[in-house]
Design a protein around this nucleic acid. Structure first.
Lengths: 323, 323
DNA sequence: CTGAAAGCGCTTACAG
DNA sequence: CTGAAAGCGCTTACAG
């Protein structure tokens, strides 16, 4: 490995001078500069990011804590984050926590020891205290940690209302809601939006807690359709659950959308690949990722951040599973 | 931040002694050890991974170069990799290259400067020279770099044969193949397997280069079915393309599987969520990831690796899109 | 068993 | 404009 010393020797200057040209900082004569430049290319020198980190306590790395990258909601988030990070000269460390406190704590520890410059938390376990101890800027994604932590979320309740109203408008008389796990804020909010809307319109409705799980959704919807063939609309709190509902409908020979209308939530890319393609409440997933990392970098680079709560509006994407 | 010095002072020993208990290495008296342990917990001391890295040129990080985490094949790979990495005490840096030489080179550079301990390359651009210059162990995933680089792949050709034979066995008389981009090794191998099989059995066939792209597959299959309604089997080189074919079939009112049978390739999770669920040639995606990281860690930790080429057999998953 | 010292590869005051 | 020196937080010979 060639170090700054080698470069200095080769260019006949001191390491201080090399450092100056490296960082474009401080006075350095034209001759010295060119000599150093030549030495750098001749020796194919690359400064050690680690040595730099030791000095300035920065690493140009950010940690991304998510429950599970294999959950189709997160890859697109991760992509948005990484694209912005790359442009800004940061690198992303991927941490799957499975929503386990232990894993999360492990990663928080490890990241801190590596002097990461910031952390995006899209995973749900620790309380604020948990993160405040960390001496690192953080951003909360799809969850709330504290008013002091910049947060990026989606208007879940509003999205749920849009979907439910749409089903009602399209003539549904008995609507089922496939809700996410109780206690999970996003799931609760979507449920609230659904409930308020059906009650407001006085529509019959049924709620099933399928979680964000395709298989369970399929099973439960099949049973539902057997017992209540009059169900003519389904609002699923995730596209994955909606896909399960579509499978159940297919098995039960129910025609979608003529006979049964289905709306999902999320807008992950595979919804469009379903047949028919899934009508859904789309979150601007990629942009959410971009916003989160931008807020994080603003903090890292000491730019004042104006607003702490960014709430994106979801958008109805009418596709093939509704009339 | 509390450093080793603070701990030493607090425990009334030298930093050398603290270091010894930290690393469980070298002699240290019982009293000294307990004093240090107490100091560590009292001060909530965590050693700096960066300072350590500077000394021993290791970072306990590995780089993962993939084309795009948003491509549904990669999240599961990444998960397999990260799970093993976590257990072994490594951390994963996520690098999306979009198969662009420039991005790849940038990341290679950055990773090297951070003293990453190893790199998994699942992206296709650089030649061997490109990577050899790097003084870091690497593993090739889903691609070939050199005989000297441990490689983890799948028997693509064999998988394609299995799928094609299955369609023939189930009575298909005219089979279309939706192939990936020419020049991409995996795509070429799958195409070869298809071609040899249809020729061996003397079946009519058509080849469309849809890429691993759902939308293009849909468009091209729709045209195909219009012009050649006699096509009764489709072997897609990816599940994503197969989903596109299913959409085209749906639009054209072709019944799957009665009227048209479809087989995909990959075994990504969303194939199961399609209606009907997709018959596919499943790669052991998660295990491929596990194998790749295991080989990498073996190299990093100087364990001899016996075989350099690991070729996983794909497995036919018969589901709903075939008879 | 223990500590002083050198060194890992940088950066930045401080003198000159 | 430039270099010697100290320091970032560790680890490991080397003496004792």
């Amino acid at each position: 490995m060639t170090t700054i010393k080698d470069v200095a020797k080769y260019a006949n200057v001191s390491v201080a001078t090399v450092s100056r040209v490296l960082n474009n900082k401080g006075y350095v004569s034209k001759e010295a500069e060119t000599a150093v430049q030549k030495a750098i290319t001749d020796l194919n020198y690359r400064p050690s990011a680690v040595a730099r980190s030791l000095y300035d306590k920065k690493s140009r790395m950010i940690g991304l804590l998510i429950p599970d990258i294999a959950n189709p909601f997160f890859p697109e988030i991760a992509r948005g984050i990484e694209d912005v990070a790359l442009k800004a000269g940061y690198t992303v460390v991927l941490c799957n926590t499975d929503n386990q406190v232990k894993k999360e704590a492990h990663y928080l520890n490890t990241l801190e020891q590596k002097y990461v410059d910031g952390i995006i938390v899209a995973t749900g376990v620790g309380g604020y205290e948990h993160y405040k101890a960390l001496n690192v800027p953080i951003v909360a994604l799809d969850r709330f940690i504290s008013e002091h932590v910049p947060t990026v979320t989606v208007e879940n309740k509003q999205g749920a209302k849009l979907a439910t109203e749409y089903l009602i408008q399209k003539g549904c008389m008995h609507i089922a809601h496939l809700r996410g796990q109780t206690g999970l804020v996003t799931a609760d909010e979507r449920y609230q939006g659904f409930k308020e809307t059906v009650e407001q319109f006085g529509k019959r409705h049924t709620v099933l807690e399928t979680g964000f799980n395709s298989y369970r959704a399929e099973e439960m919807v099949r049973v539902l359709l057997e017992q209540h063939p009059e169900v003519d609309g389904i609002f699923a709190a995730s596209d994955v659950a909606a896909a399960g509902a579509m499978k159940a409908a297919h098995t039960m020979k129910r025609m979608v959308p003529d006979d049964l209308q289905i709306i999902g939530f999320d807008g992950i890319s595979f919804g469009e690949m379903l047949s028919p393609s899934l009508t859904t409440v789309k979150q601007p997933i990629y942009q959410i990722g971009e916003k989160a990392i931008s807020l994080l970098i603003d903090q890292i680079e000491n730019r004042p951040i104006k607003t702490f709560q960014y709430v994106f509006p979801p958008i109805m994407h009418i596709r093939g599973t509704t009339k």
